[in-house]
Amino acid sequence: MNVIAIQMHFKRNLLAYIAALPMALTVFVAYMGTMFWSVRLSFSSSRMLPKNDFVGFVQYERLFNTSRWISSLENLLLIAFLFLVICFVLGFLLSIFIDQKIKAESFFRTVFLFPYAMSFIVTGLVWQWIFNPQLGVQKTVQALGWDSFQFDWIVNPDMVLYTVVIAAVWQGAGLVMALLLAGLRGIDEDLWKATKIDGIPAWRVYISIILPMLRPMIITTVVLLSISIIKMYDVVVAMTGGGPGVASEVPAKFIMDNLFERANIGIATAASTVMLTTILCLIAPFIYSNYIKKQGR
């Protein structure tokens, strides 16, 4: 490309560049800038006030010696695994069910997607009441006469994480359904006719043919779900407050507590840097395969 061509290109797109400028500035200054500043602070000795010194990995060392942080990470792993798997399976089944040209389809679609429209705080509160042994399911069933009935997961340190997963799945499955349904609708009718002629059972078609065709949708779903797991905060605060004890603590809550209540900026930024690195490692392969590799071809 010679100079004139570049100039032509620039002139033609000048308006577009100007239009994109505010957003670009916001991204670079507000998002990236603060991100880098957080990373910088994680290497300082800041407590209540940001400091400008450099202490190496001291904050990280302290972070990984904190038992609450370690159990937060373990909890997050368990939640992430269960949430992803259950949400995905349930969402996929729901989308297949709705794709069967059922009656009142839009009604069911709305019903299943509706939880997603609710904030995590509301979701958390509703499920807290449902699980509360003195208000919710346990009390109701006992009132019906089944006195020995016990359902106290939310106050049981060994089971409380599953209650969080249930609430999160209830909220997230609808989104998976909507995304995958859009994908299913894009699949050619002829494909179904062809497989019918070949006599392939429907479940086989879904698993071996449809799922691979839905790849872009699945990637979007996984990325969206992963992000909501990593920033999971409000549902835990509303449901369990991290308790009983530290049984349902999550990293985002650890960060918020240290940043605000404990006035411990150093350790909070170290923790958020760890989370940022984790996210980057997770989504880098997706970004690579979807954007960079394609352009290279």
Partner: peptide
């Protein structure tokens, strides 16, 4: 405050 915070964590 940061130390008192971890003490509360330990107590709970």
């Amino acid at each position: 405050s940061y130390r008192y915070g971890s003490v509360k964590d330990a107590i709970t």
